[in-house]
């Protein structure tokens, strides 16, 4: 997700220190740095543009309010995405949408949580198979259970490592890997790709 991760981590810690001393520009820099990956993630979770903007804004406001709890020995992005993940869980809980715990096994044919998909003005360019597949991908992602979709988005949209995801969710790396594999297999099944020749 971030090429020079070590340097970025030091920059983030420095920006946080400045923000805590009242430097508004420092926190604005943090927002501009993480707004794209945050919205890439949140938009795929809530599936509505305006809601994604509202949720992302709320996440940054919560991050600002709890900046003093950030420990610089950890990655800022991990801390920020944990706030976002927890906020989404609360968000769905308030909407009385069941959020499946990561500790529960995923059963075959599980309905999971289907969030309302916003009407899309499709602009699929059929001459490009990749774009057609991407459009199908977005729809299929919306049908994944929330806890699997989250990991799939983090892995393949945000480019997070298994270790980063494990740190965010406070679960073992092996569990994260298994869940990501499950998400990918479910996506493949939802896309109904042509079976391989026997």
């Amino acid at each position: 997700m971030i090429e020079d991760k070590k340097a970025s981590g030091l920059d983030d810690a420095k920006l946080v220190r400045k923000a805590l001393r009242g430097n508004r520009g420092a926190f604005e820099t943090i927002i501009r740095k993480y707004q794209q990956p945050m919205l890439n993630y949140v938009s795929r979770m809530v599936r509505e543009r305006e809601m994604a903007l509202d949720v992302s804004q709320e996440v940054f406001l919560r991050a600002y309010a709890s900046l003093s709890s950030f420990r610089p020995e950890f990655k800022f992005s991990t801390w920020l995405f944990r706030i976002a993940s927890n906020y989404l869980i609360d968000h769905w809980r308030k909407k009385k949408i069941v959020a499946v715990s990561l500790d529960q096994p995923v059963e075959d044919g599980e309905e999971g949580c289907y969030l309302q998909v916003a009407d899309e003005t499709a602009s699929v360019v059929r001459e490009l198979e990749r774009k057609e597949l991407q459009a199908k991908l977005e729809t299929a992602m919306g049908r994944l259970p929330d806890h699997l979709r989250e990991l799939f988005v983090w892995r393949h949209v945000n480019g997070m490592s298994y270790e980063e995801m494990a740190e965010i969710k406070k679960i073992p790396v092996g569990t994260v890997k298994n869940r990501v594999f499950q998400a990918k297999e479910m996506m493949r099944a939802l896309l109904e790709e042509s079976p391989c020749p026997v």
């Binding site: 604005e28 927002i31 501009r32 707004q35 794209q36 919205l39 890439n40 938009s43 994604a52 903007l53 992302s56 804004q57 990749r130 597949l133 991407q134 991908l137 977005e138 799939f152 393949h156 949209v157 480019g159 990918k184 996506m187 493949r188 896309l191 790709e193």
Partner: peptide
């Protein structure tokens, strides 16, 4: 599948979001 997912269109962030 992985390649397509990794090249999904990014969310269009409004200029005034920050």
């Amino acid at each position: 599948l992985a390649g397509a997912a990794e090249s999904l269109a990014p969310f269009e962030v409004p200029e005034d979001f920050a």
